[in-house]
Design a protein around this nucleic acid. Structure first.
Length: 566
RNA sequence: UGCCUCGUGGUGUAACUGGCAACACGUCUGACUCUGGAUCAGAAGAGUCCAGGUUCGAGCCCUGGCGAGGCAGCCA
């Protein structure tokens, strides 16, 4: 465990686990589970839960199960099962052979339902959904008992079996727990345990036409698997009495009961400039506001992966935001900070120009090419060096030249000398404009003695620019992403509007970039830093003759910050 | 006029279970630099939602307010 000096403070879950471990509550065992419903793609909020559940298991020498909460066949699909498994593995976690489904337990659940009927604490209700709803009361008003509540055990057993056999159409009957229609906790007002759905299930096919509700499946699934700590988000807090109630009525052995599973709730992750609801994410996909679940602007795991995030960065993020019970909204900047920190250490550096400005080196021999050595990663010299070709015609970034520069502009301007990274010092001699007066190219001279980037006379230049040789550069489609929403809180909109009106119309801009030839061999998923610009990765849309590159995140830019202020 | 949970710098998370609030991110300085990146050094920023109470002493305990979130699917 952790007996070391720095001892990071424990979150409340860790405190509970350590206490339980000390008291040998579960015979010193820890077993958690990650229980997604396969009805959508996983997002960064799930990543927090995955990291927590697998992380606790790892930290305390336990295991973590993967269990699909597949109790509602009409919403679920294998497509989602597959994507969820892929995402969890990609994040770096493994459930080994412990891949379970709530549907694995349908038989057992059915038996337990009959047991509750026999105990007189469950009954078949003929009410329609509307009637059930109308008699449930409100949070401030008690509900009314159903007239079917006092059916005999025999009748209930018979009816329930007929429900199972498919004798009744959808919605005509439900099995309910007999608890307390006046309970201040709505979930205890005779909650529905089973409903009829003549729908085929992605795993059990047409074997069943009645399906258990979440509340009647989750706690028991935890119990069957021997989960010690069932971690979920805050909205399930009010379900806990019910979670316990079902178990109370199912477990008859005091010894088993002593170490049985317990639910603990933590606050879900929220990010600003982002929506996290599966329903809304689905809407974005279905209505074509983004290009699929893995659109790099989506907060889905698959979107982040395609955007160029690393699992390490996401895990670090999950670790650093912590776990507590209070509502929180985390700055997306912090997520990006964690990413930059990771990529800074590992990303191969190359040069690429996004908004090219032609530079002609007047005194450089026509047709000649020079190979200059460039460092692949200044943070890690084991990554070595590469050669970058230099020639008479180059591209630099438009923003790196100003005809009439302000005080603190360190880059190129008429008469000024700057360094081209790993290459030469150049001095701007002339600015050439087109008929409209736009700068079309600039003429410079270079100092051959500054080859490699330093001048023998020790003179200094204030600016260093990235560049690319025009004749050697590889063209690529570069996709520049920005946040999907313009508002910090996308749910804040005017009356009559919805969250879609907060979509950022400029969340994706595409441009043609010129990149140094070493990218030619890059494969989808490869990540690198374009010096001075940001981190980028190769998109799977790339083909052998067309490179598509995503901008993952920009570098911090203190010049931009300065100019934005004034 | 119900129940549950929560309320600590701008944002998160801590405070050895009562000893005058720490860490990270952000912000602002400065140093260094062949990425205006990275790195390094430093600063500002909360007196812990409010009001009482217990105590020598409270962010931690008690009482009462106020505020936020959750709960009325045959969704999970």
């Amino acid at each position: 465990m952790n007996i070391e000096e720095p001892k990071k403070p424990l979150n409340f879950i860790e405190e509970i686990i350590e206490k339980d471990l000390k008291n040998k509550k579960h015979n010193g065992k820890i077993l958690t589970r990650f229980p997604p419903e396969p009805n959508g793609y996983l997002h960064i909020g799930h990543a927090k839960s995955i990291c927590l559940n697998f992380g606790m298991a790892q930290k305390y020498g336990g295991k973590c199960n993967l269990r699909f909460d597949d109790t509602n066949p009409v919403k679920e699909d294998v497509e989602y099962v597959d994507s969820i498994k892929e995402d969890i593995h990609w994040l770096g976690f493994d459930w080994e052979d412990r891949e379970f489904y709530a549907s694995d337990y349908f038989n057992q659940l059915y038996e337990w339902a009959k047991l509750l009927i026999k105990k007189g604490v469950a009954y078949v209700d003929d009410h329609s959904a509307d009637e059930v709803s109308a008699t449930r009361g409100t949070p401030t008003l008690p509900g009314q008992e159903s007239p079917f509540r006092k059916r005999s055990v025999e009748e209930n057993l018979d009816l329930f079996e007929k429900m199972k056999n498919g004798d009744f159409p959808d919605g005509t009957k439900v099995l309910r727990a007999k608890i307390d229609m006046a309970s201040p906790n709505m979930h205890m007002r005779d909650p529905v345990m089973y409903r009829i759905k003549h729908a085929s299930h992605h795993r059990t096919g047409d074997v069943w036409c009645i399906y258990p509700m979440y509340d009647f499946a989750h706690g028991q699934s935890d119990f069957i698997e021997g989960i010690t700590h069932s971690l979920c988000t805050l909205e399930f807090e009010v379900h806990r009495p019910l979670y316990d109630w079902f178990l109370d009525h199912i477990i008859d052995s005091p010894e088993v009961n002593r170490s049985r599973t317990h639910q603990f709730e933590f606050a879900r992750l929220n990010l600003n400039y982002t929506v996290m609801s599966k329903r809304l994410l689905l809407q974005l996909v279905r209505d074509g506001h983004v290009n699929g679940w893995d659109d790099p602007r989506m907060p889905t795991i698959s979107g982040l992966r395609r955007r160029g995030f690393t699992p390490e960065a996401i895990r670090d993020f999950a670790d650093r935001v912590g776990v507590a019970k209070r509502e929180n909204v985390i700055d997306v900047d912090f997520l990006e900070h964690c990413l930059r920190e990771d990529l800074n250490k590992r990303a191969h550096r190359i040069m690429g120009v996004l908004n090219p400005l032609k530079v002609v080196i007047e005194n450089y021999p026509e047709g000649e090419t020079d190979e200059l050595e460039a460092i692949n990663n200044p943070e890690d010299d084991t990554m070595g060096t590469r050669n970058v070709p230099f020639s008479k015609v180059l591209y630099i970034e438009q923003e790196d030249f100003m005809e009439d520069p302000p005080k603190k502009f360190f880059r190129l301007a008429p008469g000024r000398e700057v360094r081209l990274r790993y290459a030469y010092f150049i001095t701007c001699k002339e600015v050439i404009k087109d008929k409209e007066g736009n700068i079309s190219e600039i003429i410079c001279t270079y100092d051959p003695a500054s080859r490699g980037g330093n001048s023998p006379d020790g003179r200094k230049v204030k600016g260093t620019l990235h560049w690319v040789s025009a004749q050697h550069a590889v063209k690529a489609e570069v996709r520049l992403y920005d946040r999907l929403f313009v508002k910090e809180d996308p749910y804040e909109y005017k009356e009559g509007e919805n969250f879609l009106s907060n979509l950022n119309p400029e969340s994706l801009k595409t441009t043609e970039g010129y990149i140094e030839p070493s990218v030619k061999s890059a494969q989808p998923g490869d990540k690198f830093q374009f010096e001075r610009l940001g981190y980028f990765c190769v998109d799977p849309d790339s083909t052998p003759d067309k490179l598509v590159i995503n901008r993952t995140v920009t570098l911090k830019d203190s010049w931009a910050k300065m100019t934005n202020k004034s």
